[in-house]
Each structure stands twice: as structure tokens, then as C-alpha cells.
Amino acid sequence: MRLIDLSLSASDEDRGAFLSELCESLEIDHACYALQDPFSGNVHGYATYPEEWKQLYGQRAYQHVDPTFTKAVRSVAPVDWSRFTSDSGFDTVFSAARDFGISSQGLSVPVRGPFGDIGLLTVTRDCGEREWQGLRRKIIGGLQSAAVNFHDSVMRSNTIAGLMRVPPLSSRECEILQWIAAGKSQQDVGDILSISPRTVEVHLRSAREKLGALTTPQAVGRAVRLALISPG
């Protein structure tokens, strides 16, 4: 999945482009991200929805009754909107959404950050039930990663703590990045450290995400720049 790099001082345009690209690469119709900033209380929102729908949504204050937002933010796992079919708020919002060509078939992916901050990425796709099930299974991992990536980007730009923060990598994560920088494969690193390649991958994934990197080489580059590891 090719995505716009949001890790360094992303603008609102970058974030909008990120969502459009997410739709493109994951075969979804619309994507929307909302965050309630725990420090300022402000809600930050980005969406690929038509402007008219965004306006109507705000005017009618649907964010207070829309369960794909109000209820889904309290879930740990992504929430398929089929869970809301008997919810009156859902009916209200999505019967209105239909006039804008927006499907009531979708998924909300909640993100929790370290400061009690909660974000939510929602996506919709108008297609048959079966196709939706298959698509959901295929894209769910990418959506989880994209949701946290997006959330972290917004949080970093909204808090001084975020801007100043050096990612807290563990010694194990640094050690693994150091071996990767030295040209070792994941299998090699597992052998050297006497851990399974799967465990190497878990640490690497965590290190990548902490560094806001989309790829392992990018993570190595950032770790070198932050002096967390030495050049290979």
C-alpha cells in the first residue's frame, strides 16, 4: 500500500490526500477520520465526503447521534456497521446520507493513544454483502495501521509533547534495527539473537510504527538520524 508520509509536519492538504489515497488503494468509497483532542477538547476531522454532506452533518450535529462515531469509539476492535442496524441514530444519519450517495455499509476503526486520546477512522463501501465481507478481511490490517499512523500524525501536530518527543524504542528494538542496518535479514537477526523470526517482526513492526516509518529502511534511516543506532 503506497501512502503519503504523514510523519513529518503534515499539512491538512497532506491529510486529505492521505485519505483519498487510502480510498484508492483499499477500494473503498469514502474515508473519514475524527479525533477529540484530550488537551484542547477540539474535534479534528478529515473526510473525503462531499462538502454538502459534511455541512449538513455539522448543521444537524449528527456527531452526537451517529453510532459509527459515538459508540464505535468505545470499542477495542474495529466495528462493522451491521452492528448498528437497529440503532435509531444510525437510521437517522444514514437515511440522510443515502441522498448523497453514501452507503450505510462500513467499518469504524477506533484508535487509542497513550494520553487517553481516542481517534476514529471510518470507511464506507457500497457493494454486495459478500463482496464487503471479503474486502473487509483483505483490508482490515492496512486500515488498522493507517488509522494509527493518521492518529499519531494529528496528535504530534497538536501537542508540544508530541513535537518534542523522541520515540521510546526498547533496547531490543534498537538492537534489531542495528542488525538490519548492518545488512542482516530478519531470519539472520532471529538466529543471532536466538529469537523466532516472528518475534523479530513483532519488534520491527513496533519500531517502525513508533518512528512513524512506513518501511523498515525508513525506520533505520530515522533511527540513525535520532542517534538511536549507529550507521550500519
Partner: peptide, 27 residues
């Protein structure tokens, strides 16, 4: 979720020998 508040980052931190916990969208 390991991206938000969870026990490894807090009460179980001693199990990690004082190291920061893993944090990932998919963990």
C-alpha cells in the same frame, strides 16, 4: 490496544526490565 494505555506500559512494566513496551496498531 497496545497503542493506548495498557498494563505492559504501566503495572507490568517491571516484567520488561524497565524497557518501553511494544506499541503497534496490529498488536
Amino acid at each position: 490496544q497496545t497503542t493506548g494505555p495498557h498494563m505492559m506500559a504501566d503495572v507490568f512494566a517491571p516484567l520488561l526490565d524497565g524497557e518501553p513496551p511494544l506499541r503497534s496498531a496490529r498488536l
